[in-house]
Design a protein around this nucleic acid. Structure first.
Lengths: 197, 197
DNA sequence: CGAGTTCAATACGGCACCGTATGGAAAAGC
DNA sequence: GCTTTTCCATACGGTGCCGTATTGAACTCG
């Protein structure tokens, strides 16, 4: 009897599950993380919001750290790949892709809180830092590649990709702490400057 | 006898104080805030690091919230005014001032952690948000004013000031979670684009 | 020197949360 | 039908922190 840990999904389709899965905990944890920060994701409050007790939690997860780890796994997978796939699918030319990228990343109202929460978290946790750096590198590389495709030379493309991405992180922070989102015109003004050879 | 609260400084010059003042607690709180985030600034651990017990703390402060409030007061005062004064003093032309501003704000190694910690904090605390918005507005206005002075029209100046400032916030976040600082050349590349009419 | 003031130690009650242990109920498999 | 698995409830001990109360030491100042 090797303690807990589920090995197989209960083959639930999409019906209202009478019983919770690990994903339900992760989803609720995202809410807590976005609203309160890492230190706000505690198992007992989470259980209360889910209408169960922590007895449930400790069946699905080893401990609180395991939940946080699952949270990060979830983020690292979805955060980058989805957007890039979407952008590549929607547009053909690199120029259009750049503008679409900005539009998509600055459109979602939930993204800023979540992103900013992860970054806040990353300031005092080494395991988060590693993932942040990987994700940042991947995203930056994607932007740089588009800039090259649009005619900017390699060296400048990397610098400008950095600049643009930094601004996006800044925007997430800004919105996360209650600032008004910066207008699309501003983003396009910046983008126009950055795609000039 | 109106409880606690000191009204007069103990007229200490600059000598090693045998006794702690509120500033010592604030200073130590900054360390905790930068390293661990708001939830890391707790009075008992702080007391331990200062080599005293919390008996001391509750003489100088009403409660933990008062310390956090003092922290913010401290930040709001120093964060903006000092840099602007310095920049204005060092350079004459607005163009030089812009480049000096970037150099100064991206040079300090402690600033990113502190700034990012405040921003992380601001995501779940309304009183912090207000101050952040004030500070952000003041800084942005300063940049915009310099851009106008350098020949950019008003509308564009505001957009570009926003863009530049967002990038700076992003840089603080980046460095705070362990990323390498972005090179001066990158900042200057960005700045060159932004000061073009 | 004695009284008040300033800073700190000690000790206490309380709360929120972690993780464990154990038991039960409902569904799944034989 | 009976066992096993899956999921959750209850109850408990333990920890880290908050804030208060009380006492004490050291320094001022008359």
């Amino acid at each position: 009897m090797e303690k807990r840990r589920s090995t197989k999904a209960p083959s639930r389709k999409a019906a209202q599950p009478k019983t919770l899965g690990a994903e339900a905990w992760v989803a609720e944890a995202w809410r807590a993380l976005s609203e309160l920060g890492v230190d706000g994701v505690r198992v007992e409050p989470l259980a209360a919001r889910l209408g169960v007790t922590k007895g449930s939690f400790y069946w699905h997860f080893e401990d609180r750290a395991a939940l946080l780890s699952a949270l990060l796994d979830d983020w690292e997978q979805r955060a980058t790949a989805a957007v890039i796939r979407e952008v590549d699918a929607r547009c053909e030319s690199p120029r259009e892709r750049l503008f679409a990228l900005i539009r998509m990343t600055t459109a979602s109202p939930e993204a800023p809180d979540a992103e900013h929460a992860v970054r806040a978290w990353g300031a005092h946790d080494t395991s988060v830092r590693k993932r942040l750096q990987r994700v940042d590198a991947r995203r930056e590389a994607y932007v740089a590649q588009l800039l090259v495709a649009v005619g900017v030379d390699e060296a400048r493309a990397q610098m400008r990709a950095r600049a643009l991405y930094l601004a996006l992180i800044g925007e997430y922070a800004r919105v996360a702490h209650g600032g008004a989102a910066t207008e699309r015109a501003t983003w396009e003004e910046l983008m126009r400057k950055l795609i000039e050879p």
